[in-house]
Each structure stands twice: as C-alpha cells, then as structure tokens.
Amino acid sequence: MSNSHLFLKSTFVNAPLQNGVGRYVCQLQRVTLKFCKNHGASRGMRDFIESDLVNYAKENPATVVYLKPRRHRGATIVAEYLNGEKQHVDCRNLEGDVISKWLHLLKTQSGNHEHVRFRKMWHTEHPSIQGPWTPYTFREPALNLVEFPSAEQSRPAQLPQTATDRLLEIFKEQQALNKQPRIEDLEANRAK
C-alpha cells in the first residue's frame, strides 16, 4: 500500500455552493471544440459538429460552445467550469457518439479535479444525534455473555409452519374424523 495519500490535502465532500438545494446550476460554463478541417484524426469531431452540435446547444442553453479550427492538429475538448478549473479531453480518432458521451460526462461533473484525501466517505451539515447504524445496533444483549462455540446457538432455527403443511394437516384430520373408505378399498370390495 502506498503512503502517497499522506501528502494530499484532506477535505470533506461538498457540493459546490450547495448545488441542488434550491435549484440545480450546471457547473460547466464553456466548452471549446478544437479540430482541424482536413486532418484525419478530427473526422469524428467534424461529424459531431455537422450532425449533433445544434441539438447539444439547444439541450444545454447554460453552456457556451465555441468552435476553434486549428491546422494540422488532433481534436480536443476544453471544458471550463464556474470555479475556474479547466479540463482537456483528447478526441483524436474518436467517433461522434463517443464525443457526445464525453460532453455529457463533462456537463455532469462539478469541476473539482484536484486530488484530495477524503476524511470521510460522507459529510452532512446536520449530523444525527443517534449515531450511525451498525450491524450490532439491534443485537440481542444476551449474546454478549455467551461463550462460543455454543450448542444452543448452533442449533438451526425453528421455521414457522407453511400454509401447505397446515392444509395437509387439516386434510388428514378430516379424513380421520370421517373415516371414509379409500377408493382402493371400494374397488377391492367390488371385485370380490
């Protein structure tokens, strides 16, 4: 196991500006699509621009989309977030549908891309006064005094009677009360 986590800044997980409490604010501010008009590695980006870019812009009115043609370079996406962070995605030789998936991923991220060590897996502004639930919360207190292995604890639990078993019991009780002859006995008497 590595000790590199000791040198990372430690923090809690927080949504930016309490995002989602009142209303959702998309953190993606600006997307720049860089591509070459002739380069073969930019073919997927050009296909995306021709077919899906208008739909993407209509679906995401809060995000500004820039197109930046560059000569003899591969395609890239530069995403800029409200907190000032930038993220670059290399799109060389990617298809148009893969580029749309990358844009969807960039849209749903918060923009916090620095490496941090989390102090807890969860964080809340108003912690519970009852404490967290554990598998031992509602255990029988008598189990604290039992010495294991215990014969009583090893015995299988008595299962409740099923409905099928109960119906069979009722049927046998009715047969015993009525003492009706069985069909085989009647057929044997007729043969005699």
Score class of each variant (00 low, 15 high):
166 R>W: 05
120 K>A: 11
9 K>Y: 01
175 Q>N: 15
41 A>F: 02
101 K>G: 13
31 V>C: 14
164 T>Q: 08
148 F>N: 05
141 P>W: 00
46 R>V: 06
161 Q>D: 09
80 E>M: 10
72 H>E: 05
144 N>A: 15
50 E>M: 04
183 I>Y: 03
106 L>K: 02
113 H>N: 09
30 R>M: 05
137 T>E: 11
120 K>E: 14
80 E>V: 09
68 K>L: 14
34 K>R: 15
66 Y>N: 05
24 Y>A: 05
46 R>E: 08
148 F>L: 14
49 I>E: 05
2 S>W: 00
188 A>H: 07
66 Y>S: 03
132 P>K: 02
86 K>E: 11
51 S>N: 13
110 S>G: 11
154 S>P: 00
170 I>P: 02
158 Q>R: 15
121 M>S: 10
90 D>K: 09
185 D>Y: 11
12 F>H: 12
23 R>L: 01
26 C>G: 09
159 L>Y: 04
149 P>A: 13
18 Q>S: 12
124 T>F: 00
4 S>F: 03
85 E>Q: 11
62 A>H: 09
171 F>Y: 12
89 V>N: 05
83 N>M: 04
128 S>K: 01
183 I>A: 10
119 R>D: 15
126 H>V: 08
192 K>I: 08
53 L>F: 14
133 W>I: 15
95 E>C: 06
62 A>T: 09
56 Y>N: 00
31 V>G: 04
156 P>S: 10
89 V>Q: 08
91 C>I: 06
15 A>I: 06
80 E>Y: 07
99 I>N: 06
108 T>W: 03
90 D>G: 07
130 Q>E: 13
9 K>F: 00
121 M>F: 00
96 G>C: 10
66 Y>Q: 01
145 L>R: 04
134 T>C: 09
122 W>S: 14
173 E>R: 12
4 S>R: 02
31 V>D: 05
127 P>F: 00
123 H>I: 02
65 V>E: 00
191 A>F: 07
192 K>Y: 04
135 P>R: 09
64 V>S: 07
33 L>R: 12
124 T>D: 09
72 H>F: 01
187 E>N: 15
148 F>P: 01
117 R>Y: 03
114 E>C: 06
78 V>C: 06
107 K>P: 01
132 P>W: 01
88 H>W: 06
22 G>L: 13
3 N>G: 07
53 L>G: 08
41 A>K: 03
66 Y>A: 04
65 V>G: 02
129 I>K: 02
33 L>I: 14
123 H>L: 03
89 V>L: 13
47 D>G: 11
181 P>K: 14
159 L>R: 15
184 E>F: 02
18 Q>K: 13
114 E>D: 13
144 N>I: 04
88 H>C: 01
178 N>V: 14
46 R>G: 09
68 K>N: 08
15 A>N: 10
52 D>V: 00
180 Q>G: 15
68 K>Y: 10
171 F>Q: 12
58 K>I: 01
166 R>I: 04
13 V>M: 15
35 F>W: 00
17 L>V: 03
126 H>R: 04
63 T>D: 02
85 E>S: 15
43 R>S: 10
